[in-house]
Protein backbone atom coordinates (compact mmCIF):
# COMPACT_ATOMS: atom_id res chain seq x y z
CA UNK A 1 0.00 0.00 0.00
CA UNK A 2 1.32 3.37 -0.99
CA UNK A 3 1.94 5.74 1.87
CA UNK A 4 1.01 9.23 0.89
CA UNK A 5 3.68 11.84 1.24
CA UNK A 6 2.14 14.72 -0.61
CA UNK A 7 1.33 15.32 -4.23
CA UNK A 8 1.64 18.68 -5.94
CA UNK A 9 -0.53 19.35 -8.95
CA UNK A 10 1.41 20.08 -12.11
CA UNK A 11 0.56 22.37 -15.00
CA UNK A 12 -0.75 19.39 -16.95
CA UNK A 13 -3.03 18.52 -14.03
CA UNK A 14 -4.56 22.00 -13.98
CA UNK A 15 -5.14 21.84 -17.70
CA UNK A 16 -6.78 18.44 -17.45
CA UNK A 17 -9.10 19.46 -14.62
CA UNK A 18 -10.08 22.66 -16.40
CA UNK A 19 -10.81 20.85 -19.63
CA UNK A 20 -12.98 18.30 -17.87
CA UNK A 21 -14.75 20.99 -15.90
CA UNK A 22 -15.46 23.20 -18.90
CA UNK A 23 -16.57 20.42 -21.26
CA UNK A 24 -17.96 17.62 -19.09
CA UNK A 25 -18.70 18.67 -15.52
CA UNK A 26 -22.48 18.82 -15.71
CA UNK A 27 -23.16 16.05 -18.21
CA UNK A 28 -23.94 13.58 -15.46
CA UNK A 29 -26.35 15.96 -13.67
CA UNK A 30 -29.14 13.90 -12.11
CA UNK A 31 -31.83 14.32 -9.49
CA UNK A 32 -30.25 11.93 -7.02
CA UNK A 33 -26.79 13.45 -6.55
CA UNK A 34 -26.83 16.34 -9.02
CA UNK A 35 -23.17 17.09 -9.90
CA UNK A 36 -21.92 14.11 -7.87
CA UNK A 37 -20.50 11.96 -10.64
CA UNK A 38 -19.39 15.10 -12.49
CA UNK A 39 -17.21 16.17 -9.57
CA UNK A 40 -15.55 12.76 -9.43
CA UNK A 41 -15.06 12.73 -13.20
CA UNK A 42 -13.35 16.12 -13.07
CA UNK A 43 -10.67 15.11 -10.56
CA UNK A 44 -10.38 11.34 -11.13
CA UNK A 45 -6.92 11.36 -12.77
CA UNK A 46 -5.56 13.50 -9.93
CA UNK A 47 -7.11 11.25 -7.28
CA UNK A 48 -5.37 8.30 -8.93
CA UNK A 49 -2.06 10.13 -8.72
CA UNK A 50 -2.58 11.10 -5.09
CA UNK A 51 -3.63 7.69 -3.81
CA UNK A 52 -2.27 5.23 -6.37
CA UNK A 53 -4.31 2.87 -8.54
CA UNK A 54 -6.16 0.01 -6.89
CA UNK A 55 -5.63 1.09 -3.29
CA UNK A 56 -8.44 1.03 -0.71
CA UNK A 57 -7.65 4.72 -0.07
CA UNK A 58 -8.46 5.53 -3.67
CA UNK A 59 -11.75 3.68 -3.42
CA UNK A 60 -12.67 5.63 -0.30
CA UNK A 61 -11.75 8.91 -1.99
CA UNK A 62 -13.73 8.05 -5.11
CA UNK A 63 -16.77 7.23 -2.99
CA UNK A 64 -16.43 10.50 -1.10
CA UNK A 65 -16.34 12.49 -4.30
CA UNK A 66 -19.26 10.63 -5.85
CA UNK A 67 -21.70 11.97 -3.24
CA UNK A 68 -24.28 14.72 -3.57
CA UNK A 69 -22.76 17.93 -4.84
CA UNK A 70 -24.27 20.99 -6.47
CA UNK A 71 -22.82 24.42 -6.95
CA UNK A 72 -22.45 27.10 -9.60
CA UNK A 73 -20.65 25.64 -12.61
CA UNK A 74 -18.82 28.96 -12.84
CA UNK A 75 -17.18 28.50 -9.45
CA UNK A 76 -16.92 24.73 -9.07
CA UNK A 77 -13.17 24.66 -9.76
CA UNK A 78 -12.54 27.04 -6.85
CA UNK A 79 -13.88 24.32 -4.56
CA UNK A 80 -11.92 21.71 -6.53
CA UNK A 81 -8.73 23.72 -6.08
CA UNK A 82 -9.16 24.08 -2.34
CA UNK A 83 -10.11 20.40 -2.08
CA UNK A 84 -7.04 19.16 -3.94
CA UNK A 85 -4.72 21.47 -2.01
CA UNK A 86 -5.85 19.84 1.23
CA UNK A 87 -6.11 16.30 -0.09
CA UNK A 88 -2.75 16.40 -1.85
CA UNK A 89 -1.02 17.34 1.38
CA UNK A 90 -2.83 15.18 3.91
CA UNK A 91 -4.18 12.30 1.86
CA UNK A 92 -6.88 9.96 3.04
CA UNK A 93 -7.02 11.37 6.59
CA UNK A 94 -8.36 14.61 5.16
CA UNK A 95 -11.38 13.08 3.43
CA UNK A 96 -13.76 14.02 6.25
CA UNK A 97 -12.44 17.57 6.21
CA UNK A 98 -12.68 17.72 2.44
CA UNK A 99 -16.27 16.47 2.47
CA UNK A 100 -17.00 19.22 4.99
CA UNK A 101 -15.30 21.88 2.87
CA UNK A 102 -17.26 20.77 -0.19
CA UNK A 103 -20.61 20.83 1.58
CA UNK A 104 -19.80 24.09 3.30
CA UNK A 105 -18.72 25.92 0.17
CA UNK A 106 -21.14 24.65 -2.44
CA UNK A 107 -24.06 26.66 -1.02
CA UNK A 108 -22.40 30.07 -0.86
CA UNK A 109 -20.70 29.63 -4.24
CA UNK A 110 -23.97 28.51 -5.80
CA UNK A 111 -25.60 31.69 -4.52
CA UNK A 112 -22.85 34.06 -5.68
CA UNK A 113 -22.39 32.25 -8.99
CA UNK A 114 -26.08 32.25 -9.77
CA UNK A 115 -26.57 35.91 -8.95
CA UNK A 116 -23.55 36.99 -10.97
CA UNK A 117 -23.56 34.61 -13.93
CA UNK A 118 -27.05 33.14 -14.16
CA UNK A 119 -28.90 36.38 -13.44
CA UNK A 120 -26.81 39.52 -13.86
CA UNK A 121 -24.69 38.89 -16.92
CA UNK A 122 -27.66 37.49 -18.88
CA UNK A 123 -29.74 40.46 -17.74
CA UNK A 124 -27.31 43.16 -18.77
CA UNK A 125 -25.89 41.52 -21.87
CA UNK A 126 -29.25 39.99 -22.77
CA UNK A 127 -30.88 43.41 -22.52
CA UNK A 128 -28.30 44.99 -24.80
CA UNK A 129 -28.34 42.10 -27.29
CA UNK A 130 -32.13 41.90 -27.34
CA UNK A 131 -32.74 45.65 -27.77
CA UNK A 132 -30.37 45.65 -30.74
CA UNK A 133 -31.74 42.38 -32.13
CA UNK A 134 -35.31 43.67 -31.96
CA UNK A 135 -34.25 46.13 -34.66
CA UNK A 136 -32.51 43.43 -36.66
CA UNK A 137 -29.00 44.29 -35.53
CA UNK A 138 -26.84 41.30 -34.43
CA UNK A 139 -23.88 43.27 -32.99
CA UNK A 140 -25.14 42.93 -29.43
CA UNK A 141 -25.03 39.15 -29.74
CA UNK A 142 -21.34 39.22 -30.55
CA UNK A 143 -20.71 41.58 -27.63
CA UNK A 144 -22.34 39.02 -25.36
CA UNK A 145 -20.27 36.21 -26.85
CA UNK A 146 -17.09 38.22 -26.21
CA UNK A 147 -18.04 38.84 -22.59
CA UNK A 148 -18.81 35.15 -22.01
CA UNK A 149 -15.55 34.05 -23.56
CA UNK A 150 -13.78 36.42 -21.15
CA UNK A 151 -15.69 34.74 -18.32
CA UNK A 152 -14.49 31.33 -19.55
CA UNK A 153 -10.90 32.58 -19.31
CA UNK A 154 -11.59 33.66 -15.75
CA UNK A 155 -13.07 30.22 -14.96
CA UNK A 156 -9.94 28.63 -16.39
CA UNK A 157 -7.63 30.68 -14.16
CA UNK A 158 -9.45 30.42 -10.86
CA UNK A 159 -8.47 26.78 -10.25
CA UNK A 160 -4.77 27.48 -9.97
CA UNK A 161 -5.48 30.51 -7.82
CA UNK A 162 -7.74 28.57 -5.44
CA UNK A 163 -5.22 25.73 -5.21
CA UNK A 164 -2.45 28.14 -4.24
CA UNK A 165 -4.45 30.04 -1.67
CA UNK A 166 -6.27 27.05 -0.21
CA UNK A 167 -8.73 27.39 2.62
CA UNK A 168 -7.72 30.98 3.43
CA UNK A 169 -9.35 32.09 0.23
CA UNK A 170 -12.97 32.08 1.18
CA UNK A 171 -12.77 34.13 4.34
CA UNK A 172 -10.48 36.68 2.72
CA UNK A 173 -12.56 37.11 -0.38
CA UNK A 174 -15.90 37.30 1.34
CA UNK A 175 -15.96 41.07 1.78
CA UNK A 176 -14.86 41.87 -1.75
CA UNK A 177 -17.29 39.41 -3.24
CA UNK A 178 -20.08 40.99 -1.25
CA UNK A 179 -19.13 44.47 -2.45
CA UNK A 180 -19.00 43.20 -6.01
CA UNK A 181 -22.35 41.46 -5.78
CA UNK A 182 -23.87 44.57 -4.27
CA UNK A 183 -22.62 46.79 -7.10
CA UNK A 184 -23.65 44.26 -9.71
CA UNK A 185 -27.19 43.94 -8.35
CA UNK A 186 -27.47 47.73 -8.35
CA UNK A 187 -26.62 47.75 -12.04
CA UNK A 188 -29.12 44.93 -12.58
CA UNK A 189 -31.94 46.88 -10.92
CA UNK A 190 -31.08 50.02 -12.91
CA UNK A 191 -31.11 48.07 -16.18
CA UNK A 192 -34.46 46.49 -15.38
CA UNK A 193 -35.86 49.99 -14.85
CA UNK A 194 -34.50 51.01 -18.24
CA UNK A 195 -35.90 47.88 -19.87
CA UNK A 196 -39.37 48.45 -18.47
CA UNK A 197 -39.30 51.89 -20.05
CA UNK A 198 -38.06 50.73 -23.43
CA UNK A 199 -38.92 47.14 -24.26
CA UNK A 200 -42.59 46.64 -23.43
CA UNK A 201 -44.23 48.12 -26.48
CA UNK A 202 -47.88 48.27 -25.52
CA UNK A 203 -50.39 51.09 -25.31
CA UNK A 204 -54.06 51.80 -24.69
CA UNK A 205 -55.60 52.37 -28.13
CA UNK A 206 -58.97 53.25 -26.60
CA UNK A 207 -60.50 56.52 -27.76
CA UNK A 208 -63.34 57.88 -25.63
CA UNK A 209 -66.07 59.86 -27.39
CA UNK A 210 -67.64 62.56 -25.25
CA UNK A 211 -70.18 64.22 -27.47
CA UNK A 212 -68.16 65.80 -30.27
CA UNK A 213 -64.87 65.57 -28.39
CA UNK A 214 -62.82 62.41 -28.87
CA UNK A 215 -60.28 61.75 -26.17
CA UNK A 216 -57.23 59.53 -26.69
CA UNK A 217 -56.62 57.68 -23.46
CA UNK A 218 -52.96 57.01 -24.29
CA UNK A 219 -52.06 60.65 -24.88
CA UNK A 220 -53.56 61.50 -21.51
CA UNK A 221 -51.51 58.79 -19.87
CA UNK A 222 -48.41 60.13 -21.64
CA UNK A 223 -49.06 63.53 -20.13
CA UNK A 224 -48.87 62.04 -16.65
CA UNK A 225 -45.78 59.98 -17.42
CA UNK A 226 -44.62 58.29 -20.61
CA UNK A 227 -44.39 54.51 -20.32
CA UNK A 228 -46.79 54.35 -17.40
CA UNK A 229 -48.68 51.40 -18.94
CA UNK A 230 -45.63 49.09 -19.09
CA UNK A 231 -44.69 50.10 -15.54
CA UNK A 232 -48.19 49.25 -14.32
CA UNK A 233 -48.13 45.86 -16.07
CA UNK A 234 -44.75 44.99 -14.53
CA UNK A 235 -46.12 46.03 -11.13
CA UNK A 236 -49.13 43.74 -11.59
CA UNK A 237 -47.03 40.80 -12.70
CA UNK A 238 -44.64 41.40 -9.80
CA UNK A 239 -47.55 41.23 -7.41
CA UNK A 240 -48.90 38.12 -9.13
CA UNK A 241 -45.55 36.35 -8.84
CA UNK A 242 -45.58 36.91 -5.09
CA UNK A 243 -48.78 34.89 -4.73
CA UNK A 244 -48.58 31.43 -3.22
CA UNK A 245 -48.30 28.51 -5.64
CA UNK A 246 -47.48 30.81 -8.56
CA UNK A 247 -44.76 29.75 -10.99
CA UNK A 248 -43.19 31.81 -13.74
CA UNK A 249 -44.69 29.51 -16.38
CA UNK A 250 -48.20 29.96 -14.98
CA UNK A 251 -47.73 33.73 -14.94
CA UNK A 252 -46.58 33.70 -18.57
CA UNK A 253 -49.79 31.95 -19.62
CA UNK A 254 -51.96 34.23 -17.49
CA UNK A 255 -50.35 37.23 -19.19
CA UNK A 256 -50.99 35.75 -22.64
CA UNK A 257 -54.67 35.10 -21.85
CA UNK A 258 -55.24 38.58 -20.40
CA UNK A 259 -53.38 40.29 -23.22
CA UNK A 260 -55.46 38.47 -25.84
CA UNK A 261 -58.70 39.27 -23.98
CA UNK A 262 -57.86 42.95 -23.44
CA UNK A 263 -56.75 43.27 -27.03
CA UNK A 264 -60.03 41.74 -28.24
CA UNK A 265 -62.08 44.39 -26.41
CA UNK A 266 -59.74 47.12 -27.61
CA UNK A 267 -58.22 48.19 -24.31
CA UNK A 268 -54.67 47.02 -24.99
CA UNK A 269 -52.64 47.06 -28.18
CA UNK A 270 -49.17 46.72 -29.58
CA UNK A 271 -47.39 49.97 -30.47
Amino acid sequence: MKKNNGYELTKADFKQINKRSLFGFQMGWNYERMQGSGYLYTILPQLRKIYGDGTPELKEAMKTHNQFFNTSNFFNTIITGIDLAVEGKEGVDSLDTVAGIKTGLMGPFAAIGDSLFAALVPTIMGAIAATMAAQGNPIGLFLWLAVNIAICVFRWKQLHFAYKTGTKLVSEMQGQLNALTDAATLLGVFIVGALIASMINIQVPLVAHLGKVSLSVQSNIDMILPRLVPAAVVGLVYWLLGKKGMTSTKVIFIVIIFAVALSAIGVLGKI
Partner: peptide, 9 residues
Protein backbone atom coordinates in the same frame (compact mmCIF):
# COMPACT_ATOMS: atom_id res chain seq x y z
CA UNK B 1 -50.18 42.16 -28.10
CA UNK B 2 -49.36 39.25 -25.79
CA UNK B 3 -45.95 38.93 -27.40
CA UNK B 4 -45.31 42.60 -26.76
CA UNK B 5 -46.45 42.28 -23.13
CA UNK B 6 -44.46 39.15 -22.26
CA UNK B 7 -41.14 40.88 -21.49
CA UNK B 8 -42.97 42.33 -18.46
CA UNK B 9 -42.89 38.83 -16.95
Amino acid sequence: TAGATLPAV
